[in-house]
Design a protein around this nucleic acid. Sequence first.
RNA 1: UCCGGGGUAGCUCAGUGGCAGAGCGGGUGGCUGUUAACCACUUAGUCGCGGGUUCGAAUCCCGCCCCCGGAGCCA
Length: 443
Amino acid sequence: MPTPDPAAEPDLERVRVEDLPDHVGRDVRLRGWVRHFRSSGKIAFLEVRDGSGEVQAVFPRDQVDDGSWETLDEVHYEASVEVRGTVEEDERAPGGHEISATGLTLVGPSEDYPIQPKEHGVDFLLDHRHLWLRHPRQVAIMRVRNEVVRAIRDFYYERDFVLIDTPILTGSIGEEAGTLFETEYFDEGAAYLAQTGQLYAEAAAAAHDRVYCFGPTFRAEKSKSPQHLTEFWMVEPEVAWLDSEGNMALQEEFVTFIVKRALERCGDELETLERDTGPLETVLSERFERMSYTEAVESVRSDGVEIEWGEDLRGEAEKALMEGRSRPLFVYDWPKEAKAFYMKVNPEDPRTVKCDDLLAPEGYGELIGGSQREDDHDILLSRIREEGLPEEAYDWYLDLRRYGTFPHSGFGLGVERTVAWICGTEHVRECIPFPRLTNRIEP
RNA sequence: UCCGGGGUAGCUCAGUGGCAGAGCGGGUGGCUGUUAACCACUUAGUCGCGGGUUCGAAUCCCGCCCCCGGAGCCA
């Protein structure tokens, strides 16, 4: 039998794997990539993945034409193919459905595909990130990320927040010096990649009352940890007339919304990832705990961790603090010195500022950093001077306090950390399609 | 930057002073229901780089590079 030209069978309906159960008994064609293949002499099996799922195609020798049978010999891992055949229910097939194939076309061969169905080292996988993305585990993580991003946009849209896209190229303005990526900008001197969109979002909050920005941010920190990227996505709402208390309430509502959405819509993905969803379920059941920084210091001291008031709660201290907790924890009102210049000085205790960190359980660290912003012009200016920041660059920012200043608060949530926590991955590098790390800018 | 672990076939690794190895992948052949199939044969090396010790170094010593984990720094 000659190989049929697929174009000559225009009536053959093309289906996606997820729609196969609705096509039992029908002749169809399916396009995708070969995830795995086995041959038994007179019968061969291809596992084909098409983005909507995976299905096994069965090729008995006496059922397929000669050309298709020879094509089977040329099929390797991740070759792209078109399979033609009949959809059948079969208990022996993974997923319960299979294609009893009659024809096969090799669309794109795939010689020596580097990634095998076995364990690989992280460095090798990151070198092949463009291919690693095809792995079921990576597919699942990206789908969770997709759903988290949708949840973020839905959450703010439903609450009448206006999306404000803040610039990525900025002048010398940010949270602090020393961790900015620098590039030349025509005759204007240096430009810097944005560490945050917050300052711009604050300007827009005076126009719209409630806004958010959502995009990539950049930090030139030589951090080597499972929670750091040099390029990461952050969503930063900014709300007029909101105080620190209300800010935490918004954060809690937001995080709960995202987790709930992921549990509702990503059950299959979390199963693929073998994520124990128990800890995530408890997030939805009760309020998040709140603890002042001072209380937190006392708490970790009683656990035997040596720490001075004023130090950051990292590493061992954070571990001790989160020990035995299954829900995120707010730590609020931190020492001024440990935090950014724009945070509002606490009138009740000027050593501290009105801010909060939201710490994730299970060792996932800081999901959110938020604060009420300093709305007094003179205090803000003195804070800028104290931190030794370039005053001229912050002149427009100070304008916001000169013209109709207003109490306002906001926060930033790291998307990759959130996805890592929901997916249960060991490292945020798996939670963004093409991670940028201190030692990696390709692919 | 510091501490620890590591770098041997395309991949994952074993080999700690005496012939360079295994599994997977690739290739060839066999097998009509496989599930990371199985069986047989086969292919494949700058033992990270440079120097040194030794009759002899993947193995011991010195320097350097790179990766991973932790610390630091930080969302």
